[in-house]
Amino acid sequence: MTGPAPQPMIAAEEVGIHFPVGRGRVLKAVDGVSLAVMKGETFGVIGESGSGKTTLGRAMVCLEKPSAGRIRHAGTDPYALSSRELRRHRRQYQIVFQDPNAALNPRMSIIDSIREPMDVAAELPRAEREERARALMERVGLSPDFARRYPHELSGGQKQRVCIARVLTLRPSVIVCDEAVSALDVSIQADILNLLAELQQEFGLTYVFITHNLGVVAHVSDRIAVMYLGRIVELGRTEDVIERPVHPYTEALLSAEPVALPADLRPNKRIVLEGELPSPVSPPSGCRFRTRCRFVQPLCAEQEPPWRESGAGHWSACHFAGELHLMSNAELHPHRNVAERQP
């Protein structure tokens, strides 16, 4: 290491987010999560419903206050700020949601929706706000004709472009994309992913990409965190996690993803997880994945697996990390190798 390590844009330290669910019971949607999102990277969070990925994403932009641990933004503790300072600070940390219909006010015209964050901030003169809103509208690929139209006149992809233009108006440094392309058709999804990649270059953005879609997260992310029942079970560089998973849950997720390939190039073995996601109100003792794990041992019920580094920057929480014979990428995704060999 030379020089001081750069401050992560988002640092989560043992973050827990707990919701009371009545009769004294507590749902720990996020439980003891630590991670660091570095400047300029795309950090992917993947997990199934109930894994806590959305709650974690909301905590990253101060929409959910951690019940335990803390979140730091580039060294600053946002909750140590006065409410006035926090309002100003959080402009740097924006979020794009899955459903643009719910995110846009149906009674506001497109240009008004895009300009609204600047109107609330009230820092620029009106004419300049209008100009920036129009420029961004064009930048995200919407024709100026849309300015005076309303959300119901736009397609899903166009509405998502409006949401993206809107979060860009305050010149954020971090954007959390929570299933931002999940509701879109594949061709539109490809368009929006291309747009987000261009904007990242242009504005030097840091992204947190939360999704259940493995194809999307593997395509855009530099690093990936895999969540299960409120915990991160594996974290590492995308190629490591995708090609050499060390946690059995990651292996199962990779194996469950259907791939559009001819039969002879598809994985012939598939791991289908047995059973259901346990209730997050009373998670299993020890390793939370043990009830569905094909390698389960008595130790898994007795002790919580330690968070260990198995390769450079490749972390996981499994008692037997590195010792299990997990299906390799070549077995899970033979096409990646085959495709490279094509002339």
């Binding site: 594949v186 061709s187 539109i188 999804q189 490809a190 368009d191 992913l193 291309n194 990649a197 493995l214 194809g215 999307v216 593997a218 395509h219 855009v220 995308t238 190629e239 993803e257 791939v259 559009a260 390939l261 096409h335 495709a339």
Partner: peptide
């Protein structure tokens, strides 16, 4: 072609 799973990582996707 627009499926991200089959494209090279981080490449521009050929959208329609």
């Amino acid at each position: 072609r627009s499926l991200p799973a089959l494209a090279e990582r981080k490449s521009r996707l050929p959208a329609i």
